[in-house]
Design a protein around this nucleic acid. Structure first.
Lengths: 202, 202
DNA sequence: ATTTTTTTCTATAAACCTATAGATTCTATA
DNA sequence: TATAGAATCTATAGGTTTATAGAAAAAAAT
């Protein structure tokens, strides 16, 4: 394959479609449960032709994960840049996280559930991006402490990870149960994370 | 195979070993990523011999999930029966959930992450047990409201599910990062769930 | 000690899966 | 319209996987 060929608009567009198809199929069947045949069928080409866009099945998984993270980190960057009170920022962050499960061709779900099946080397690449995303969330929380909205003794690292865990759980639920609405889950998560379960004592 | 043969002590013991081997292998490689060869090797028998204990690979997954849930629901039953203040009960529940990720041959992890690969029919069977477990957690929370410890307006259903999501997340972390200690994560989860992140206003 | 039953093994059929090579069709441009 | 290059297809090698059948070994019963 001529290396230039990857610069045509058509290549770019089909490559994109291939990533989306892979994301969708991996999300449904898991990495090992999905075949390259499944992915190819999903985008309407033959199994062998897929290798014009991916060098291997594992490379497909890597691209899906990278795309998901890049999208997500960018979104978070936008949110954390904005000058807004904590609650608005956090709502935006949680909402974006949950929304990506519905819209993002399930790529984020694949990242969360299937990235362990990548080789160690490829997983490392993801880690950098992934921790940037956690760090941004953490920064939002730290800012919230400084502005006096959040508890001074909050362990922001633990809280950020917990928030991610919570969003991943409800994000996965959103993809399975169409009756759940994005807004409702977002606001319930917000309330849960901010207030906890205890009775407030005034 | 004579159907009586399943009643010998040896059969029972080996069958148990097979379930544990399957749990361990599925936890590490995922259902589709693991082969019946892997499971057999893990328990020191030949691939073909495994079919003396499982009718199929999928049946193995089902048995692992069922065993995990049964164990877990029993544990929860013990905890919810005890007459204890809410915080103690909840700590015991969270602790038991997290602990099972380390001790339980990873069967619970398999249930949480791999049960989607079961046929719909088999998944249904699990649902009953699974919702009993969620219900018990929910009941603990409801009791907490009545005793005045928890917020009256708490959505116990949502909170119970969120708690499960949180425990699954940290449980998975516990299996990956040996530096994390069970007690520390348990108490941090408790604190997070009870108090949330907001500054308490007195 | 012999027979029966249980457990494990060997060997293999049948299906499936990834990845590649080379032929073919399509598309854009000269 | 002829031609070069891009995109897709067909066919297949080489490997793995699940599941089964029948032989062999081990254990239990007579």
């Amino acid at each position: 394959m001529n290396p230039d060929s990857q610069n045509t608009p058509r290549y770019h567009q089909q490559h994109q479609k291939a990533i989306e198809a892979a994301a969708s199929v991996f999300a449904e069947k898991g990495y090992h449960g999905a075949s390259t045949q499944d992915i190819a069928s999903h985008m309407g080409i033959r199994q062998g032709s897929l290798y014009y866009y991916f060098t291997s099945k594992e490379a497909a998984l890597e691209e899906v994960c990278l795309a998901a993270l890049r999208d997500y980190v960018n979104q978070m960057e936008q949110i954390s840049k904005q000058v807004q009170p904590l609650k608005e920022k956090l709502t935006a962050a949680i909402g974006a996280h949950l929304a990506s499960y519905r819209s993002n061709s399930e790529a984020l779900k694949v990242h969360n559930e299937q990235r362990l099946y990548l080789s160690e080397e490829k997983r490392e690449k993801l880690k950098t991006l992934g921790s940037r995303y956690r760090q941004q969330l953490e920064d939002i929380l730290i800012e919230g402490i400084h502005s006096g909205v959040l508890n001074k003794s909050l362990d922001c690292h633990f809280a950020a990870l917990s928030l991610i865990g919570l969003c991943n759980y409800w994000g996965a639920m959103l993809t399975r149960d169409p009756k759940l609405t994005l807004n409702e889950i977002t606001s319930k998560c917000m309330h849960f994370v901010l207030n906890g379960c205890l009775r407030q004592i005034n």
